[in-house]
Design a protein around this nucleic acid. Structure first.
Length: 602
RNA sequence: GCCAACAUGGCUCAGUUGGUAGAGCAGCUGAUUCGUAAUCAGCAGGUCUGGGGUUCGAUUCCCCAUGUUGGCUCCA
């Protein structure tokens, strides 16, 4: 859940005020609980507690009842300013040590000298505000306690774990209801649910968590995406390579990954002669070794190496989820080695390629997170201020030129250069990174990568790390949710499902199916003993983009009745005509899963 | 990894205040061949996630493990 406030100031203040009401209610049921923070968030609010007796969702009713009583009591929010000394005493009286810790921090780091407290009824909280006037201005039925979660104090796993109670809240009961309904609807599109129903992937406990098995339908989608990526990369002059799944330890010392990211790697295997091998968590070092295998001239640059590479990362067990966070993944990876003069154009083409894909799939709501370095964390980053400034300026310029929305974050870059994350929102509104691009000015040095320039002088190349389609796992999860499982014909596991009205027409069905198969169309004839109605239902339930209905009329006239998934109307036409249109849709990768897409004519 | 909830046939879910389970869908067999979202009948399928404990008796209560879901942290 994103902790972002919205534009409605009243709603924001009301949510924050209700967090105080929640705290008051919890303190009544669990006296002597310690308070953490209780802010407004995107869809509601939360409050963090240390409870001496655990609470569960079964207690929600009692807490909500208490909260409604507080609303009825018409408690006024009153602000009081205290000096630091008085505030310390007050918090000590209240027994709120976490607030006291925060007070010390505010005083020390931000030079705050007076501290505001808000009182409503018997409840007092150190809090910056603002608040609404009275609890009475909140409607009693416009909020709902949502769930309980653990959350570390100040977000650090070194600190104690608090109990966080989340609530959803809107201005009116209707708005709340609508939100809950929308969320319910979004769950219907969850890639885990649809991925199972449409037989795209499965996860087996025996194979391992985070190691999805791709079923035949999912494999088709993967391969079609891969075909698209390979064509795009071919046109842009990438060379394809293949690298092994495991590698000797030393390579990751050279890359600098091992000391920092060991925890995220699968533990090593012992090979011959006590040599340790690791499953590769990324492809860059291998590509660097390919770059290095032959001397390079400036004439070879830009040198673009591409691979749909399998990577394995030991994600924490609690983090693994469906296809969104896995331990084994396949990445649309490539590394571009180029000169200082070329880097801007290359970086630009990479971003344009992203934009091409995102427009094609209509991943409309995306933005860029520009992760920059931070001078405050010198040990986290390569020490070369000049190159950092240069690279960051360059990246910022290109993003500005392309007019893509972005936000900048200091201190989140990779250790070797600035990072661009393409952020999207999944169906339930959670923000996810779809792909990452990095500008790397440092690793060439570590690997000793060089090329000879036109003066015969050795130079270090810039390296661009890019993966516009991210990993198959995550990208297909997005597509499933974005399309609600209804893929365009070119990506769809079954491209045409042929349904005979009765047995009599099965022969004709197989005849046209054979013609389509001959053109590599993925076609299926439903020759089961199900009723006609049932066959229609099945084809639609599987979200086949095209269903062909064949009865006497069609068989006699060499026609098909074509029913599309995304549009209710259907047409009858000559089979040859349909065949041409279908071929065209597949070859041109027409996004016919969107109702407004104009289809080619025969 | 941490916090919480959950775990019943392939799937969706009933059920037992402790006396070893039931439905629909899917599957199989047979009949039916039908013009736009479920034809009918029959059969088969579960030691109620795994392991311990309490009990005459546990799917039900307790503990542990595993997995799932939602958060926290992390995310090259």
């Amino acid at each position: 859940m994103e902790h972002k406030k919205n534009d409605n100031v009243f709603l924001d203040n009301a949510r924050h005020s209700m967090a105080h009401v929640l705290a008051q209610a919890v303190l009544k049921l669990r006296p002597n609980s310690k308070l953490g923070f209780g802010p407004a968030i995107e869809d509601g609010f939360y409050y963090d507690f240390i409870l001496n007796e655990p609470i569960s969702e079964n207690d929600f009713k009692a807490i909500e009842k208490e909260m409604r009583k507080i609303i009825d009591a018409d408690q006024k929010f009153e602000r009081e300013e205290l000096s630091k000394e008085a505030a310390v005493i007050r918090l000590k009286e209240m027994g709120q040590e976490f607030k006291a810790e925060y007070l010390e921090e505010l005083s020390k780091n931000q030079g705050v000298s007076t501290f505001s407290f808000y009182k409503n009824g018997p409840f007092v909280d150190m809090c910056e505000g603002p608040h609404i006037e009275s609890t009475k201005s909140v409607k009693k039925d416009c909020f709902k306690l949502d769930r309980i979660a653990g959350a570390y104090w100040r977000g650090s796993e070194k600190n104690p774990m608090m109990t966080r109670i989340y609530a959803v809240m809107f201005e009116t009961a209707e708005a709340l209801d609508e939100f809950l309904k929308r969320r319910e609807l979004a769950m219907q599109r969850d890639h885990k649910k649809l991925g199972h129903e449409l037989e795209i992937f499965t996860i087996s406990e025996e194979v391992g968590v985070g190691l999805p098995l791709w079923l035949p339908n999912g494999t088709i989608i993967r391969e079609e995406l891969e075909k698209l990526a390979k064509e795009m990369e071919f046109k842009q002059g990438y060379k394809r390579v293949v690298t092994p799944q495991i590698t000797k330890e030393g390579l990751y010392h050279t890359s600098g990954h091992l000391p920092y990211y060991k925890d995220s790697m699968f533990p090593p295997m012992e090979g011959d002669e006590n040599e340790k091998y690791y499953l590769k968590p990324m492809n860059c070092p291998h590509h660097h070794m390919i770059f290095k295998s032959l001397p390079k001239s400036y004439r070879d640059l830009p040198y673009r190496l591409a691979e749909y590479g399998n990577n394995y990362r030991y994600e924490k067990s609690g983090q693994v989820s469906g296809l969104l966070r896995v331990r084994g993944m396949c990445m649309n990876d490539a590394h571009i080695y180029c000169t200082t003069e070329q880097v801007k154009q290359e970086f630009r083409s990479v971003l344009e390629l992203h934009k091409f894909y995102y427009d094609l799939f209509r991943m409309g709501e995306f933005w860029i997170r520009l992760s920059m370095h931070s001078k405050d964390k010198p040990d986290k980053y390569v020490n070369n201020e000049e190159l950092w400034e240069y690279s960051e300026k360059l990246v910022r310029e290109i993003v500005n030129d392309l007019g893509i929305a972005y936000e900048e974050r200091a201190g989140e870059a990779a250790f070797y250069g600035p990072k661009i994350d393409f952020q999207v929102k999944n169906v339930i509104g959670r923000e996810e990174t779809a792909s990452t691009t990095q500008l790397d000015f440092a690793v060439a040095e570590r690997f000793g990568l060089e090329f000879t320039d036109n003066n015969g002088v050795k130079q270090r190349p810039y390296i661009i790390h890019r993966a516009p389609l991210g990993t198959h796992e995550r990208f297909i999860a997005f597509l499933i949710e974005l399309f609600g499982g209804a893929f365009p014909t070119w990506l769809s596991p079954v491209q045409a499902c042929i349904v005979p009205v009765s047995d009599k027409f099965i022969e004709y069905c197989h005849k046209i199916a054979a013609e389509l198969t001959n053109d590599f169309v993925r076609v299926e004839v439903d020759d089961s003993t199900d009723s006609f109605n049932k066959k229609i239902r099945n084809s639609i339930r599987r979200k086949n983009p095209n269903t062909l209905i064949i009865g006497g009329k069609e068989a006699e006239n060499a026609e098909v009745t074509w029913r599309r998934y995304c549009k209710p109307e259907q047409v009858t036409m000559k089979f040859d005509e349909f065949h041409k249109i279908l071929n065209h849709m597949i070859q041109k990768r027409v996004m016919d899963n969107f109702a407004d897409t104009i289809l080619p004519s025969a």
